[in-house]
Design a protein around this nucleic acid. Structure first.
Length: 228
DNA sequence: TCATTAACTTCAG
DNA sequence: CTGAAGTTAATGA
């Protein structure tokens, strides 16, 4: 819900101690570099400090399922906290000069024990992520591209901002990113955004999306599908 | 309806 | 200036 993604973890964490802790722990990656790979041993959690990170799963045939694209202030590899010993996705840097702060799991637990608010936030993020991913996967199978894109935008809106009526939602996604996330091609995303603009729904820009007239998703009169 | 291909324009670093 | 991002159009499943 609201504040979850809004909260920058840097703000939640105790400024002094963690800043000091982090100082020497940053790692740099250039575009395409793997931060971790499927089946790697998972004993760390990561915080994006700069750049973009893609979490994806690859099938036998080489097609990829993009689970998330993250940016500054966002956490990943967090399922290690829940005791998951092995990574079940690949994390790659999407942009040059991506900077990551790795946190050893034990240190993470210490921080969580000391700071209840922090701990709570972490768990909320984990739960929220899972929920969102499930929903996205479900839509991927049952809904057409237009609906999926609208749903994606909808997520952006209630993550970042409040109500409707002419808001600029800042974002960091290229059309290619979005296409990957909703399982389509960037050409299709481009075309849809132009349609949306014609229909007076929204305007896509590289740094923000201007929402002109949002119907909070005409939610699904269709059959009630099985939970995933 | 959307993927694919491909050629094109525009943009950012 | 170069490669990435975004646009346009034809073709076919």
């Amino acid at each position: 819900m609201w504040f979850l993604e809004e909260v920058n973890l840097y703000d939640v964490l105790c400024p002094h101690k963690l800043r000091a802790y982090m100082k020497n722990h940053f790692k740099r990656y250039s575009k395409g570099e793997f931060i971790y790979m499927e089946a790697d041993h998972a004993n760390q959690v990561f915080l994006v400090s700069k750049g973009k990170v893609k979490l994806a799963h690859y099938t036998e045939e080489g097609s990829e399922l993009v689970k998330a694209i993250l940016t500054r202030g966002e956490l990943f590899g967090e399922k290690a906290i829940l005791g998951e010993m092995v990574r079940n996705e690949n994390a790659t840097a999407l942009s040059d000069d991506t900077v990551i702060c790795p946190l050893i799991l034990d240190d993470m637990y210490k921080l969580m024990r000391k700071n209840e608010r922090f701990s709570l936030t972490i768990y909320k993020i984990i739960g929220y992520r899972l929920k969102k991913l499930e929903r996205r996967l479900e839509l991927l199978f049952f809904k057409d591209v237009r609906t999926r894109l609208l749903d994606f935008i909808n997520d952006l809106i209630d993550d970042k901002s409040d109500i409707s009526a002419q808001v600029d939602i800042p974002h960091f996604y290229t059309q290619k990113d979005i296409a990957d996330l909703i399982g389509t091609r960037r050409e299709t995303v481009s075309k849809l955004f132009q349609q949306f603009e014609q229909e007076g729904i929204l305007i896509y820009k590289r740094k923000y999306i201007r929402v002109l007239n949002w119907q909070p998703i005409t939610e699904v009169s269709s059959p009630r599908h099985m939970a995933i």
